[in-house]
Simulated assay, not measured.
Amino acid sequence: MHGPAQAGWLLVALCAATGAYCLLRMRSRIEAQRHTAGSEALMGFGMALMALPAAVIAPPRWAWLGYAVVFGAAALRALWAARHNRHHLHHLVGACAMVYMAAAMAATPTAHAGHGGGGAPALTGALLLYFAGYVLWSGARLLPVPTLAAAEGGGGGAGAVMGWGDRTELAMACRLSMGIAMIAMLLTL
């Protein structure tokens, strides 16, 4: 997960900002947004930590194993939540990808981007294809759409003020940015 330092810092900033916004979404008045926001915040902050440039911190092997355990638990939670909301299937794939990257880094802790990472090329390629498709799909969904609050009647009248956590287009932009960040992290594996 460690490439050139400047790209690493940009990836850290992008993922941390996305995680912070997802924490704000946890305060949404819309139940569907609250349910997914916690998983997305965990993913954003976890990706930010894993993307820290190697010059700053070279995590010991147990840290990678810790990431694998945390995201393994997140994968189980996403699998359970997918019974009610199919968007959690994407969270399941993302959490499994994080487990995969953490396990690859634990297996070869000295391998960094461009220096012979420890991932399986076929699985890495499949995950890259999935996230590339997800990024294209998410980008297409950013076309102007009515807000979820208005569609569910949660926003009141046309002049109702929406909170930051209720902005559907911002949530979609965060998902798009995390998909792009996942591609960047997989490319460095």
Results as ranks from 00 to 15, higher is better:
A16V: 13
H88F: 13
A78L: 06
L65V: 14
Y134H: 13
L143R: 10
A132P: 12
V93T: 13
G119S: 08
M178W: 08
A81W: 05
A111R: 04
A37L: 01
R77Q: 08
M1F: 01
A41Q: 04
P121M: 01
I30V: 15
V161P: 07
L142H: 06
A95P: 12
M43H: 02
V99T: 06
G114S: 07
A16T: 12
A160Y: 00
W9Q: 08
G119W: 03
M1K: 00
A173E: 11
A149K: 03
Y67H: 13
M1A: 03
A63R: 01
W9Y: 09
A107F: 04
L189Y: 02
W164V: 14
I57G: 11
E169K: 12
H87N: 04
L42S: 05
H35G: 04
G139R: 01
G125C: 02
G118L: 03
G3V: 13
R34T: 12
A120I: 14
W137Q: 10
V145N: 05
Y134S: 13
Y130C: 04
A73S: 04
D166A: 07
W64P: 14
M178V: 15
M50G: 11
A82T: 09
W80R: 04
L52M: 13
V99K: 02
A151C: 11
H112Q: 07
G133P: 12
M172V: 15
A73Q: 02
T110I: 11
G8Q: 03
A13W: 10
L14Q: 11
A151Y: 07
A150L: 09
L23I: 13
A81N: 07
A75T: 09
G125N: 01
V135T: 11
A68M: 10
A181F: 06
W64E: 02
M178I: 15
F71E: 01
E169Y: 14
A95D: 09
R83P: 08
A111V: 13
A51G: 08
A55P: 03
G118Y: 03
A173T: 15
A74L: 08
H87A: 05
S177H: 04
T108A: 07
A173C: 13
A181Y: 03
M185L: 06
H91L: 10
H112V: 15
M98Q: 07
Y100C: 06
R77M: 05
V135W: 00
G125W: 02
R141V: 15
E169M: 14
A158C: 12
G139H: 02
Y67L: 14
A74D: 09
A132H: 03
A78Q: 04
A122I: 15
V161E: 04
M47R: 05
W62E: 13
L142M: 14
L24T: 14
A55Y: 00
C96M: 10
A51V: 13
G159M: 06
R175I: 10
A48Q: 03
P121E: 02
L49K: 01
M43C: 07
A113K: 04
